[in-house]
């Protein structure tokens, strides 16, 4: 090859798989922050998590007098302040799906894969970059929601401290759960390669499935419900188990993590063979 073809373009090139990985991560980082949707959705996620604490904790404070003794005994102040996670999972899940399907929709994926033919690496790094950002934002929001919620729970209403058993785990668990949701969305987006299909799959599993199972006779429902991905995963941000049949916090979280790993594995085997 002619010597004059080697020019400034090659200067940044380093050798070895670590350099390749770093380059892919930088590219995905630039892509994530250079469209308005990611910061907007992440901002909305933070707002919803904190807003959930505001609405629910003030709701319990004002309605405490009308609650029965058994309802009061079942009240979990820590996870009540964290329940903004339930609507927030819509945002981070959609962000995960769109991170992949957006590229397929525009055809940008062809440019991306022409620049980095290591497809598995592109998808894994895309998930990790998004996951890291989602983790940082949602963990910080969980702490904010917890602080605000406990501040609102005054007078006769019990409140929680971070030092209480299981509370710090639950607050940290909020960020971990939402991070897994984003990764689950990324995997389902990569499997379906279509925004509506990916969203339908994600929210079908997370939101519709538990509602469906809840319609069944209680004996049957109790046997299925705890093992559904969203139900299992959300134990990690609860201090008191929501039902006697619930899995343990880390047990449930591991099961959800396994679901995510399995769907990611399916993606990685498929992408090798698929045309784009």
């Amino acid at each position: 090859m002619n010597a004059h073809l080697v020019r400034t373009a090659a200067e940044g090139r380093r050798h070895g798989p670590r350099a390749r990985l770093r380059a892919t991560a930088r590219s995905e980082w630039v892509k994530l922050w250079s469209v308005r949707s990611a910061p907007a959705v992440l901002g909305a996620t933070a707002v919803v998590i904190v807003l959930g604490a505001l609405v629910l904790c003030s709701g319990y404070r004002s309605g405490w007098a009308s609650m029965s003794a058994s309802e009061r005994a079942a009240f979990d102040p820590a996870s009540t302040s964290l329940r903004g996670i339930e609507p927030a999972q819509l945002f981070v899940g959609a962000l995960g799906v769109l991170a992949v399907t957006g590229e397929y929709g525009t055809g940008l994926i062809r440019t991306t894969l022409a620049a980095t033919p290591q497809r598995a690496q592109v998808l894994v790094v895309k998930g990790l970059v998004l996951g890291a950002v989602v983790w940082a934002v949602t963990t910080a929001s969980s702490f904010g929601a917890f602080a605000l919620g406990q501040h609102l729970l005054t007078g006769p209403v019990p409140h929680a401290e971070l030092e209480d058993p299981g509370v710090l785990r639950a607050v940290l668990g909020g960020g971990l759960y939402l991070t897994l949701i984003a990764l689950f969305g990324t995997a389902l987006g990569a499997l379906s390669r279509s925004t509506p299909l990916g969203l339908a799959a994600l929210f079908g599993v997370l939101l519709v499935l538990p509602l469906m199972v809840g319609l069944l006779p209680s004996g049957l429902a109790d046997g299925i419900l705890p093992y559904l991905p969203g139900e299992a995963g959300s134990q990690v941000w609860h201090v008191m188990p929501p039902s006697p049949h619930s899995l343990g916090p880390w047990q449930g979280f591991s099961l959800f993590a396994l679901d995510v790993v399995v769907s990611a594995g399916a993606v990685l085997t498929l992408t090798r063979k698929r045309d784009v």
Binding site: L56, G59, Y60, S62, S66, P87, L90, L207, V208, L211
Partner: peptide, 25 residues
């Protein structure tokens, strides 16, 4: 499509689960 369906999910699946069991103040 994505925004409209997210709004519907919020209205019909998330909000009810979130607020229906709050104390009836």
């Amino acid at each position: 499509t994505a925004v409209a369906i997210s709004a519907l999910l919020c209205l019909f699946t998330i909000l009810p689960v979130l607020v229906n069991n709050l104390p009836k103040g």
